[in-house]
Amino acid sequence: MARPSKALASRALAPLILAALAVATPARAERVVSAPAPVLDAAPTRKLETAVFAGGCYWGVEGVFSHVKGVKLAVAGFAGGPRNQQVDYARVSGGDTGYAEAVRVTYDPKQVSYGTLMRIFFSVVADPTLLNRQGPDRGTQYRSALFPLNGEQERAARAYLAQLGKSGLWRDPIVTKVERFTGFQDADRYHQDFLRKNPRHPYILRWDAPKLAAFRDMYPALYSDSPSA
């Protein structure tokens, strides 16, 4: 039996199927937690910084981060695979490239820290106890991972995952990994700003709009009504 996925949502009958799911299921698509503030954060700098997160379908990850105050740009794409391999959505969807759907976040550390981005990510975007899946999507391309771009981010990422493991917020062990950054490849234009451009899409309504609403409700001081470019 074929598993539901966002690729399925693009097929002709998928909107009807997913719309039925949206009616039959609670408004909150996934469990929301109040992740703790990081004990160790990356040291702030005076320049814009970049962070890369993988947390299942990149539509929702990008959609949430684009509404964070201090985030200047959020781009959907792919990370985690071999450095010299060129990929696109069709190839990554096969699950055998080593790449994961990911989002590159450009942010002003004077306004929002790397640790705060991680806190938002694990509060409302990704469940760190799910191995190679998030929401309805399955496969290594939907794994959750942190891709530090420098030593400060790596120290903060490893410390925060350890902190989450001791927090007692989840019954199951933390499986999110800190992975080596081998580069980032942008997804095509169709997948950029998908939540903003397609707010009534059945997949967005069922899985990603609730994440954005949870972020707005849980962290109102960090929420921006106007998404980044």
Rank of each mutant, 00 (worst) to 15 (best):
M1H: 09
L13F: 13
I17W: 05
L18R: 01
A22L: 05
T25Q: 10
E30G: 10
R31G: 07
V32T: 15
V32W: 00
S34K: 13
A35S: 12
P38F: 00
V39S: 14
D41C: 13
A43R: 14
T45M: 08
R46L: 14
L48T: 09
G56W: 00
G56Q: 04
C57L: 05
W59F: 11
V64Y: 01
F65Y: 14
S66T: 06
H67L: 09
L73Q: 12
L73Y: 04
V75K: 05
R83F: 03
Y89F: 11
R91A: 14
G94M: 10
T97E: 06
G98T: 09
A100Q: 09
A100I: 00
T106G: 04
P109E: 06
K110E: 14
K110M: 13
Q111H: 09
S113K: 02
G115M: 04
L117R: 00
F121P: 06
F122G: 02
S123Y: 04
D127M: 04
T129P: 11
T129A: 06
L131N: 04
R133T: 14
R133L: 00
Q134I: 03
P136C: 09
G139C: 06
G139N: 07
T140E: 12
Q141A: 04
Q141V: 02
Y142K: 04
Y142D: 08
L146G: 11
P148M: 10
L149G: 13
G151I: 00
G151Q: 10
E152H: 11
R155D: 06
R155Q: 15
R158W: 04
R158E: 14
Y160K: 02
L164E: 05
S167P: 07
W170P: 03
I174P: 01
I174V: 13
V178W: 04
V178Y: 08
R180N: 08
R180C: 03
T182S: 14
Q185K: 12
H191Q: 12
F194N: 02
L195T: 12
L195F: 05
L195G: 01
P199Q: 11
H201K: 06
Y203D: 13
D208E: 14
P210H: 07
L212A: 10
A213V: 03
A214T: 01
F215S: 03
F215R: 01
Y219R: 06
P220W: 12
P220L: 12
A221Y: 06
S224L: 05
D225F: 03
P227H: 01
P227V: 01
S228M: 01
A229T: 15
